[in-house]
């Protein structure tokens, strides 16, 4: 049950910078009426963010132009197919993990 002081302070610091962006909109938006263009912009956030997070996994940063992680794409294709076919979160995640394990076993 040892906790290193430096590690503890890093954890607390990281916790603070993580919780602020999480709670700030909840603390302020309830006080003001949002302008229409802003709510319109917000409505497009989920799809753009989820796309960006998926792409993030497939990109490997290098010193020059970013490389595309081919193995990652190879795992992603059957996962995407299963996601569209089943529309199930659970089955998609299981498929993804199994494909990733399989691809890494082979390559």
């Amino acid at each position: 049950m040892k906790v290193d002081l430096t590690v503890f302070l890093i954890i607390v610091g990281c916790a603070l910078v993580t919780i602020i962006p999480r709670i700030l909109p909840f603390a302020i938006i309830r006080r003001l009426q949002l302008p229409k263009p802003f709510t319109k912009w917000l409505s497009y956030i989920p799809v753009c963010l989820l796309t960006a997070l998926v792409v993030q996994g497939a990109i490997r940063q290098t010193d020059s132009i970013p490389a595309i992680n081919g193995l990652h794409l190879l795992i992603m294709l059957p996962t995407l197919f299963i996601a569209m076919k089943t529309k199930s979160l659970l089955i998609t995640v299981i498929t993804g993990v199994l494909c990733a394990a399989l691809v890494r076993l082979i390559f």
């Binding site: 989920p46 799809v47 989820l50 796309t51 997070l53 998926v54 996994g57 497939a58 990652h72 795992i75 992603m76 996962t79 995407l80 996601a83 569209m84 529309k87 199930s88 979160l89 998609t92 995640v93 498929t95 993804g96 993990v97 199994l98 494909c99 990733a100 394990a101 399989l102 691809v103 890494r104 076993l105």
Partner: peptide
């Protein structure tokens, strides 16, 4: 843990959530 494919669970979940959004 990478050999077990566990790290891909994150991407798979984002992918599924995206497809569900579109559907």
């Amino acid at each position: 843990s990478e050999a077990l494919g566990l790290d891909f669970a994150l991407t798979a979940m984002f992918l599924a959530l995206l497809v569900l959004q579109l559907a």
